[in-house]
Write a protein that binds this DNA or RNA. Structure first.
Length: 266
DNA sequence: ATGCCTCAGCTCCTGAGA
């Protein structure tokens, strides 16, 4: 079983790349079972359901014009779907949650926050507090849970190409990292770091200044998995290949592979 | 460095992203 997250920065622009990537994964012999997409920048009436159906995927979309918007693609249908965080008023479409193959899947697009002294940063903090409360409740009901998406937060300096130069800037502040830590304190594990990774592993690179070629990036896209899913985890990797495409998203996918349930070790 | 790209939209500039 394979789960992935990808901020596509406009599904309208990136749809062919998403389809190509899914096809390439399947051609490698291990198709993606669940893909969480962020930053669709599309309303649901413009969501390309037909294209994903033809590719063998069920899709649930929670879209918005111009900004935000999230989707869950899956080879088996999504059940018990929820949109956004319960009991948190939010005009922005940032969260989709569903049960897929017995796993509670939460796809999230955490607010960017712009700058630490901005109103948008305050919104990011409130949003993350609400997310924490809700995920804690979901975890009590679902032992197999993954929270994946664009968190817009680095765990620590190893996730930052220039930790000194970017100290206390957006994505790197202690306040943001405390929220990420609070999520892992619920018993969620940073899936990528369960496995050895190449040094300077990032998931986002600025479009400007040849940042990708220079590997000047940040690791801000994450899969956080519950204890039971951790026991099923087989590999977790950043796939940089789509970032080399023409007109790429500035983010690239992160992929988690799980052992089948019947070979789970405890 | 008030810069660099890219995207969407009340589109030939602006706001936002990260």
């Amino acid at each position: 079983m394979k789960l992935a997250t990808w901020n596509v920065n406009s599904l309208g622009v990136r749809l062919p790349q998403v389809l190509d990537w899914l096809a390439a994964q399947a051609a490698d012999g291990a198709p993606v079972d669940v893909l969480a997409l962020q930053e669709l920048k599309l309303t649901d009436d413009k969501f390309p359901f037909d294209a994903f159906t033809a590719a063998g995927y069920h899709a649930v979309s929670f879209g918005q014009k111009t900004y935000n918007g999230v989707a869950l693609l899956s080879r088996t249908p999504a059940q018990v779907v929820m949109r956004n965080i319960p009991n948190f008023e939010d005009e922005q479409a940032r969260v989709l949650c569903a049960t897929i193959d017995g796993i509670r899947v939460i796809g999230a697009y955490v607010p960017n926050g712009q700058a630490p002294d901005s109103d948008k940063f305050a919104y990011k903090m409130r949003w993350l507090t609400a997310l924490h409360t809700w995920v804690a409740a979901e975890l009590r009901q679902h032992e197999q849970l993954v929270l994946m998406g664009d968190f817009n937060i680095t765990f620590d300096d190893a996730d930052v190409w220039d930790a000194e130069g970017l100290r206390d800037t957006i994505h790197c502040t202690p306040q943001e990292r405390a929220h990420l830590q609070a999520l892992t304190d619920l018993g969620l594990h940073d899936a990528l770091r369960l496995f050895p990774q190449p040094p300077k592993t990032y998931t986002w690179w600025d479009y400007r200044d040849l940042a990708f070629r220079r590997n000047r990036g940040l690791r801000i896209d994450h899969l956080l998995i519950s204890e039971v899913l951790k026991s099923r985890a087989r590999t977790c990797q950043v796939d940089r290949t789509p970032r080399k495409n023409e007109r790429p998203s500035d983010h690239t996918p992160v992929v988690l592979t799980l052992h089948p349930t019947d070979v789970t070790l405890t």
